[in-house]
Design a protein around this nucleic acid. Structure first.
Lengths: 236, 236
DNA sequence: CTATCATACCGACCGGCGGTCTATATTTCA
DNA sequence: TGAAATATAGACCGCCGGTCGGTATGATAG
């Protein structure tokens, strides 16, 4: 039987792909290394040739996630068509408004990301994302402070709060999505929209802006994700 | 050899004590069940008589933590000597101002709590603490809204933000403590105090209070913890 | 074309893990 | 006092992440 040898980088990405699928569905702890190598169709020796440990695999996966997420938004920083407030709003609504047609994917992600068995994976991704997003945010806020749009004595701190709110929003969305009946969903949507409004106003005031300046995502997005969920449920 | 049989509840607490010591020093994943039972001086059979799994042990530990933490503050809710703002401030500074003489303990806790291997343990504790603290916070904020001290349309949301800030502060403290030289420490203290001031002002504005109303802990607390750290370092 | 060597890969094997199970000791109380 | 309920012991199980000696493959130099 001839051994199939792919280009090293492709093989590495291959392993990451299979690991991602398994980790997201079963969790980092529950998906064993044997599962990963079986899924990828390689031997243990091959795996340990590319990664020094299961832990390192997790780390690489988190890095890849963060890099992909960052790639989608880093154009915002230098977009000459936007002022600082516009940039901040673009960044805040990016992941949400992006493409409503992928709401089903968004649901799948939310559904898996906040399951407790994915805590470790999620935490790593978060660390990596934080490390790449935070400087971007800080730059935007600094630009705004310089041109007088924003008022704050601690741009890094505000950036941290923005990241916290972003994460918390995802958390609330995940909880809303987890709900059962249609009535539950409507209530959850209301709660969620109230929460998002609170975060918007909070950021307005922290940055010394008039209420209504900051806009986090489209309200329709939540309903779109929920509808995608309903469809996915029916399909089962 | 006569078998020593303690009162069931005492035995359970005993196991929790030993597990706590091991989990906090080595982390939940690294400390094996065998380590726990060896430390507690019991057999595997005895352990599984009291807990259905290692996971359940973790859960019980988190619950105990949360219960202890809550016990220290629940008197605040009904303290007739405090108005809503006073209650909120008491709650916010409680864990910090409490007893400066235990700064060494506080350092030990911080030092261990934020180590990555304790992520799982810490997350559980946090969930449990959140579940018990949040209703308390919501009640206080509602009281304030009713008597006109606070202005917000989403008390639960504000409570969530308060919890977020509290956690983030701990995180920043932990990072500050992790630093190396004395100069590093001074810088870290400055950053931290700036951050706390930001959180205070943010909460002021979110709740429609004049700047300077909310007070999160004593500024001296941080320095006290840092000093305790320096002592502990020297002792080693 | 061939010898050489680093790279890519294989899978049996290892210690230790969380958890199960059967047997036994101890307590409780009719 | 004796039987049922509770508490404890520790050998054992399947599986996990990781190691290791060995083999196949590809690039390079003579």
């Amino acid at each position: 039987m001839p051994r199939v040898i792919k280009h090293p980088e492709i093989r590495r990405e291959d392993i990451l792909d299979h690991a991602q699928a398994l980790f997201l569905t079963q969790g980092y702890d529950r998906a064993s290394l044997n599962d990963v190598i079986a899924s990828a169709g390689i031997s243990k020796g091959a795996f340990y040739h590319y990664f020094p440990s299961k832990e390192a695999l997790l780390e690489a996966l988190a890095d890849r996630f963060a890099r992909q997420a960052l790639a989608g938004v880093q154009g915002i920083l230098d977009d000459p068509g936007l002022d600082p407030l516009g940039r901040l709003n673009s960044l805040l609504s990016q992941s949400r408004q992006a493409k409503i047609e992928t709401a089903a994917e968004a649901w799948a992600l939310f559904e898996t990301m906040f399951r407790p068995e994915n805590l470790v994976l999620f935490h790593r991704i978060n660390l990596a994302a934080n490390a790449s997003f935070s400087p971007l945010l800080v730059k935007i806020i600094r630009q705004g402070v310089e041109d007088g749009t924003f008022r704050t004595f601690d741009p890094e701190g505000v950036a941290d709060i923005v990241m916290q709110f972003g994460l918390a929003t995802h958390d609330v969305v995940a909880k809303a999505i987890a709900g059962g009946s249609d009535a539950d969903m409507e209530v959850a949507i209301e709660v969620l929209e109230k929460r998002v409004r609170l975060y918007e106003i909070a950021l307005d005031r922290i940055l010394g802006l008039p209420d209504g300046s900051i806009r986090i995502g489209e309200p329709g997005y939540i309903r779109a994700v929920m509808t995608a969920r309903r469809k996915a449920d029916k399909a089962r």
